[in-house]
Computed example of a mutant assay.
Amino acid sequence: MGTLWIVSSGPGSLQQLTPAAIKAIATADVIIGNAFYLEMLEPLIRNKQVIRSSMGKEVDRAKEAARLAADHNVAMITGGDAGVYGMASIVLEVVEHEFPNTDVEVIPGVTAATAAASRLGSPLSGDYVTLSLSDLLTPWEMIEKRLNLAFQMGVPVALYNPKSRGRPLNLGKAINIAMQYRSPETPVGVVKNVFRDGEEAFCVTLASLGENDELVDMHSILIIGGEETRFWEDNGDVKGIITPRGYHRKYVY
């Protein structure tokens, strides 16, 4: 009997892989995953049996991985963190329903929100909310309800899957909801292709993003600041975004 590792590949750079993820990949007989994520791991998966899949084949991929784990060590590769919009839930559900004796281990990784935050400064810092604007698996009515509740909390909100060709208007709807609870001058960070080729980071205001969101695409992660979030400046130049954690309320510095 083999082991099925659900391996988080992080934001895309090999330097962001955890030692546990590297060990699982090295130990696995079979590597399976979306072709986009496997391409980033090419130096680590040479001379392995590699099964490449495409978007929309997540259930088939999960079943194949669980079936192979009966007599192979299998590494199911998923981007970011497996448990945050990744493959962990569907793999565990398939195992629970069809392959109950499978030995499964989830290997955590760096998720897009924290990866993007590191490129912006410290826009999250304390409490924050992550929401996906993809309505492929979640009805838009539910997403809209969650957006309203999240922005009422006054904490930063990280938006995954903000815009694609199939849903170009969802980001605008989300910004309109944010504007009901946030100042137009609220800092917003946009990071594209974080830790990958073509990486770009932008710091804009909520109002300016509402006027023009062309800089955002499916490879972007957005962080909309909370009530205390401010721009990080150096001699008048914006270097990034800071959300104070609250030390200023307890200490003098």
Rank of each mutant, 00 (worst) to 15 (best):
P156Y: 00
Q49Y: 02
D127G: 10
K163I: 04
G189N: 11
E199I: 08
A66V: 03
T102G: 12
E64Q: 10
P139C: 07
D60F: 04
R119T: 14
T205A: 12
L136T: 10
E228K: 15
G210K: 09
N73S: 12
N193W: 09
L222C: 12
D60K: 02
R249Y: 11
K163P: 02
A75S: 14
E96D: 15
A113E: 04
V50S: 05
R167D: 10
N148C: 01
R165L: 14
V7G: 08
F231L: 15
A117H: 12
I143F: 08
A88R: 00
F99D: 08
R182A: 13
E141S: 15
P100S: 06
M153W: 00
T114D: 06
T186M: 10
P162F: 06
L4P: 15
I143K: 08
Q180I: 03
G172W: 03
V110E: 06
Y37R: 08
I177W: 04
A65C: 02
S132W: 04
S118N: 15
W5D: 01
H72E: 11
L215R: 07
H97D: 12
I90F: 10
R46L: 03
R67Y: 03
P19G: 04
T229F: 13
A75Y: 10
H219Y: 10
T229D: 12
L44Y: 01
V216F: 03
I143C: 05
E58L: 05
A116W: 05
T114W: 10
K173T: 01
L149T: 13
G56H: 00
V59S: 05
I241M: 06
G79R: 00
L136S: 11
E105F: 01
I223R: 07
I221G: 11
G246M: 03
E105L: 06
G240W: 02
E64H: 00
Q16V: 01
